[in-house]
Design a protein around this nucleic acid. Structure first.
Length: 528
RNA sequence: GCGCCUGUAGCUCAAUGGAUAGAGCAUUGGCCUUCUAAGCCAAGGGUUGAAGGUUCGAGUCCUUCCAGGCGUGCCA
């Protein structure tokens, strides 16, 4: 119908012409025109069956790209909280998806490890004479942050010392740097622990924080100033004015790259990072996962980077933003006191709730498998709840919903996988040995087979649009179709090619579920 | 003020300009001597915030309005 629009002809007539000239008897058992001009092609069962048995799950992209993915990137002056969850989980899933189809993914954890907040932490530690008091503060970075912030608000002399610590850091004063290293080691340890618990693929080697670009900022400003008319001074600050960004009065809105006091801003650091990603990492595509409040920042960043020739013309610069996580009241998800919910507390609660559910639903579970099941269900539920929604919208965080075993949830998909595993265990069959094409003589088998073969296109769609919920919707629909098949079609009690073919369907479904969930960063279970 | 985003079933969410706007939860009613009932099947539930417009075709694109959120020069 899109073709008909281009050709300005009647879509139904064009569809009829296509059917008449089509010769695909070797693939399709019937082709017919429906509605305003749809082509309904029914694939031959023998063709479907052959592909289920023998085609690869995923074919790699013939033109692999170097993709830099900037995600998670927490500010480490304080502990990771629920505000970091979406970037971390969504960026991780998209990274795995791009790797799955053969792209070279370079993860960049652009952590906040520099700036005013660290001046406060260091000044606070300096004020503590007692080594044991200092050790106690360092054992809990969140507490250190809260204490330092409170002091900063209430004590003007302290605030001045905190500001001077920032200057000391910038000039690499050894004592301040040593304290900073100390705090960062602690913060990185905390971050790694959260990633491990959430099963996030980010590793220490992926960290390249704001501080990594410190020495690049002054030369970068010089480089930009060499572009005629790009950089100008206004009210003591260095700015880039771009006519497409207007203020209320119709003036051009500036992008500040150096403050009037000589300090740099996140615009500057991000420009330096883009230069690094182009020149050193040789990125074909740069993807950012941050919340929607930064839309304007990235529009300016990309426009300025192009004007300043910091990136290649054909480098794709993409800001993939997302909405907020809301509590049940429609307001941002916070504690009752109004504080950010820490990720370690969120994970603890997920484990607690998962434990309760598993104990009720399956009290007979083997003790040695129990902890593993509880963990996979808890973490899978939290991640899937986020990934299964269109990231552009806000979403409501609901424990009961995400941990339910029915509906579009991780536990439902994990349960399907456990059922499949049960078949192979009971039948004493190795799924990788299943090569007999299924016959597909029932409607549910045909529908399962058709859906199985769409995995590739869904993965490609996620890689293009950076929207993991397409994959979730696909896997959920796959599971629904499998469950129908499972209810209606006996497997192990059958014999011959019917049994073997149905085992092939189970094997392919299991492999698709396992790979699909792994792409989302979620584990499958052989027993639940 | 200006800019961006959002508004779909009682609730939580889908719908990539296409067919009768779909799922789950909740509600009601079925299905376990048979591979995990943590499951499956069925029923009811809609003026897609409002009004115009473009199109063979609009939840989707355009205009205006309503409601909410976010951003809008020295934080990130």
């Amino acid at each position: 119908m899109a073709a008909a629009k281009q050709a300005r002809t009647n879509p139904r007539q064009l569809a009829n012409d296509v059917v008449d000239s089509l010769d695909i008897d070797d693939l399709a058992s019937s082709v017919e025109v429906a509605g305003p001009g749809f082509l309904n092609i029914r694939l031959r069962d023998d063709v479907l069956g052959e592909r289920i048995a023998n085609s690869p799950l995923i074919e790699k992209d013939p033109t692999p790209l170097r993709v830099v993915i900037d995600y998670s990137s927490p500010n480490l002056a304080k502990e990771m909280h629920v505000g970091h969850l979406r970037s971390t989980v969504i960026g991780d899933a998209v990274s795995r998806c791009l790797e799955l189809i053969g792209h070279t993914v370079i993860r960049q954890n652009h952590i906040g490890d520099w700036g005013t907040a660290f001046g406060r932490l260091i000044a606070y530690l300096d004020d503590l004479d007692d080594p044991s008091a200092m050790a106690a503060e360092l054992a809990d970075i969140e507490r250190l942050y809260v204490h330092a912030s409170q002091r900063f608000e209430s004590d003007a002399a302290f605030a001045d010392r905190a500001r001077s610590k920032v200057i000391e850091l910038q000039s690499k004063e050894p004592r301040a740097m040593s304290r900073w290293e100390h705090v960062m080691a602690l913060a990185r340890e905390h971050m790694s622990d959260i990633y491990a618990r959430l099963d996030i693929a980010l590793k220490p080697g992926d960290i390249r924080g704001e501080s990594a670009y410190n020495d690049d900022l002054a030369p970068l400003i010089e480089e930009l100033e060499n572009h005629e008319g790009l950089v100008s001074e206004s009210e003591g600050a260095l700015c880039i004015f771009m006519p497409q960004f207007k203020t209320k009065a119709g003036d051009t809105q500036p992008m500040l790259i150096r403050k009037s006091d000589g300090g740099y801003l996140y615009h500057t650091t991000d420009l330096a990072a883009l230069k690094y990603r182009t020149e050193t990492l040789h990125a074909d595509r740069v993807m950012y996962f941050t919340d929607a409040r930064q839309i304007l920042h990235f529009e300016m960043l990309f426009a300025a980077a192009r004007l300043g020739k910091l990136v290649n013309e054909n480098t794709s610069l993409e800001h993939h933003h997302f909405g907020k996580i809301l509590g049940g009241d429609g307001k941002p998800f916070k504690t009752r006191a109004g504080d950010n919910i820490l990720l370690r507390d969120l994970i603890d609660e997920a484990i607690e709730r998962s434990t309760q559910t598993i104990e009720t639903k399956n009290p007979d579970l083997d003790a040695d498998r129990r902890a593993d099941v509880i963990d996979a269900v808890a973490i899978g539920a939290v991640k899937y709840a986020d990934l299964s929604k269109n990231r552009l919208h806000d979403y409501t965080f609901d424990w009961d919903e995400m941990l339910a075993f029915d509906g579009n949830t991780a536990p439902y998909l994990q349960y399907a996988y456990a059922r499949i595993s049960g078949i192979f265990e009971k039948g004493e069959v190795n799924p990788t040995d299943c090569k007999v094409p299924p016959v597909l003589n029932t409607a549910v088998e045909h529908q399962l087979a058709v859906h199985l073969l769409r995995f590739q296109e869904v993965i490609e769609q996620v890689a293009t649009d950076a929207k993991p919920h397409y994959l979730c919707a696909y896997l959920y629909e796959l599971t629904v179709r499998f469950m129908r098949f499972y209810e209606q079609c006996p497997i192990l009690s059958e014999t011959g090619s019917t049994k073997d073919g149905r085992l092939t369907l189970c094997a392919r479904t299991g492999a698709t579920l396992k790979t699909g969930l792994a792409t989302l960063g979620i584990r499958v279970l052989t027993t639940m």
